[in-house]
Design a protein around this nucleic acid. Sequence first.
DNA 1: TCTGGGGTCCTAGGACCC
DNA 2: TCTGGGGTCCTAGGACCC
Length: 406
Amino acid sequence: MTGGERGIVTAASPEAKELGVTRSMPIFQVRKRYPQVIILPSDYRMYTQYAQRMYGIVRRYAREVEEYSIDECFADLTGLAEARGTTYEALAREIQAELMRSLDLSFSVGVGVNKCTAKIASKWKKPHGLTVMPRSAIPAFLAELPIGKVWGIGRATTMHLSKLGIATALDLARKDRAWVAEHCDRPLAEIYEEFQGNFVKELSGGGGGDLASGWGIAGGGRADGPASIQRTRTFHPVTRDRAFLWSQISYHVEDACMRLRSKGLVASQVGFFLKTQEFEYLRAEAMIPDSSAAPHEILRAIEPVFEEMWEKIKSWEGVLFRAAGISLRSLSGDQAKTNTGTLFAAPVKHRAATKLHQTVDKLARKFGKHSVFLGSSFRALKSDGDLDAPTGTDRALDVICLGEVR
DNA sequence: TCTGGGGTCCTAGGACCC
DNA sequence: TCTGGGGTCCTAGGACCC
């Protein structure tokens, strides 16, 4: 199983699952109850490389491939079996064999007439299963499937449906459209349509769909770039130390900006939140003047809003926080990369900032992520264990703008 | 299930306008 | 404005996924 670096299980092998290891189980519990389980840190860079190779192989067969997650993709095979004078099952088997041969990993493959049924089919037999669900066989599969196991139906919807007497996927599929219109929201209505054998959920990036595959672990990314970049972290013990919380936010902003720059993007909106001990969220948003990927500019935008939130918090006795996070939204390509900036931006200053961040990014690659950071992030890094408090042998220079440099 | 982190999409209702 | 009706846009937050 993996997740050793985080303290909870990220992914577990079939053997570990067999023993009783589940996702998000605390590592200390695994150690105690199943000492024979091998615990590894997650290696997302490696998984990402494998995922890219997986997409590449599937693309050799299908014209349309959606990179759904770090370990799954959807592929549109429409028409391909006929064109090759074979069956969809044989075609799927060929792709699966090629994946296993090239990557030396196990793959589960499902074939269906739309994404929903293909997803069900791909999970039907694991690991290295291959399941074909023709339109005529859909009801037989759905009859055995608890509604809560369907892709897109979570706890809340399961509860809602259970009150309406729906227990299996087939119970839902058997309803008529008038009933669906009355009791279901759009996502659920789409699932219903796919249960009828219709093709409703497009592959992202266009096309149609026929095959889903999945395997144990593995990093993907949308072709059209992310819609948001988030950073969050839980800390313990819980706290209501303002400086500490601000430092967490600063740290996350820096981190997210680094990611942003590595993708050549800038953000024009930022949201942040504090999560209380009781799992309640306090959220706020700010606009970033002149879309930016510079942490100090984004922090400047957040600061007054944070201040406002803090005024409220001050009056709440005994409220403690367990996590903080930020989210960069409204992302777009960095214009400064292609021209000299907007009419009203200050081009000289902007270039200077770009140069500064190129240097920061270079240092991060060379010496590690947080070799240079904003002074406001210092406390978060310290608590992180990434960094010890300054000692006699360390040097800490206070540099304007950058903060502390060690 | 005492509960991690990084994402996406949908929707109710407020703000604003005519 | 002792005051109707309807449209669009935006945002906060819910729900879900891996």
